[in-house]
């Protein structure tokens, strides 16, 4: 079985901007693949290269084993859920969902039946007669999803589809998207800049920065074993320790990552540091420590005693928690 999407040294430059720079990528068929990265790191451009809205400056793209360069978007078996949903304002919800089939010449009765089935799948049965303007943000998002899924694409591209939703709705949609993807077995390529979202939903994650992929791996790998300082910092805001600092903490002279939640505060053992601040997060408290000029963040689980700012504390960690990243990065 070929990969769903393959990038071989794909670049897309806009003048001097290297939006996507020599990216190698393999998305497996049927997986939930997340592209994670800060703003401007080239995620959307990657998605648009798959959808066919951009052509690579150099490199080679395959979709299910077929060369994609030069194939226009309307001949690719790929559908997109746009960040702003892009529902057609002049069509009602049913006609929006049926648009793809209408273009393909499916009869009216059949395509409206399929549209209703798709609306049921995204939990909006009976909404067909409404105009997009009469829906809430979350509902529009579901319509956009139904409009794409009704065409049974081989790959579904989602560009920050949950960005505009409030937290509660967002968590609910994360669940539903995940369930839907597993039930349909369609390959999802999901763009987000929210690391929590990527970690909780994806089978595999590619972390982008400056148009390059810094690391690809399962959420566990990305979180536990970041390969670079950037990944450690961006995913889970880890403490990134300089070689000198790692050395002082008793490790080798290498860059290292130490997760805030892996640090324990105690009365004895470990190293001494001063508390410089604390902020209450609800389910935890975040402490900032200062150890002779080096800063460390610690996440204390709810219910533990919180030392006051200015206090001197001792901290320690399990040896396995200190993840070494070499001397280079």
């Amino acid at each position: 079985m070929p990969h769903a999407v393959t990038f071989q040294k794909v670049s897309r430059h806009f003048g001097s901007v290297r939006a996507v720079d020599a990216v190698d990528l393999e998305v497996e068929a049927g997986e939930f693949f997340a592209m994670l990265g800060p703003s401007g790191s080239g995620k959307t451009t990657c998605l648009r290269l798959i959808a066919g809205f951009e052509q690579p400056t150099s490199g080679h793209i395959e979709i299910f084993g077929e060369t994609a360069e030069g194939v226009p978007p309307y001949r690719r078996n790929v559908n997109t859920v746009f960040q702003d949903y892009a529902l057609f304002p002049h069509l009602n919800v049913a006609d929006n969902v049926a648009y793809g089939q209408m273009i393909r010449g499916v009869g009216k009765a059949e395509r409206l039946r399929d549209a209703e089935a798709a609306l049921e799948m995204v939990k909006l049965p009976g909404y067909g007669a409404r105009k997009p303007g009469e829906l809430s943000g979350g509902q529009r998002q579901r319509v956009a999803l139904a409009r794409a899924l009704v065409n049974k694409p081989k790959v579904l591209l989602l560009d920050e589809p949950l960005g505009a939703l409030d937290l509660k709705l967002r968590e609910q949609m994360q669940e539903e998207l995940k369930t839907l993807q597993k039930a349909l077995g369609i390959t999802f390529v999901f763009v987000t800049h929210d690391q929590g979202e990527a970690l909780s939903m994806a089978d595999r994650i590619a972390v982008f920065n400056h148009g390059k992929i810094m690391q690809t791996g399962t959420p566990e790998e990305i979180y536990r074993r970041p390969k670079t300082r950037f990944v450690a910092d961006f995913v889970g805001s880890s403490n990134v320790l300089s070689p000198a600092f790692t050395r002082r903490l008793g490790g080798p002279a290498e860059w290292a990552s130490l997760r805030p939640e892996d640090i324990r505060i105690g009365a004895e053992g470990g190293h001494e540091a001063r508390v410089t601040g604390s902020s209450f997060l609800g389910n935890a408290t975040r402490l900032t420590l200062d150890m002779a000029g080096e800063k460390l963040t610690v996440l204390l689980p709810a219910g533990s005693a919180v030392p006051a700012p200015g206090a001197s504390v001792r901290f320690s960690w399990e040896p396995s928690a200190l993840h070494l990243m070499g001397t280079e990065t």
Binding site: P73, R104, N151
Partner: peptide, 12 residues
């Protein structure tokens, strides 16, 4: 994006 959405759904 409306135009792209249309192209994405198969319309030339």
């Amino acid at each position: 994006s409306l135009i792209e959405a249309s192209m994405d759904l198969g319309a030339d």
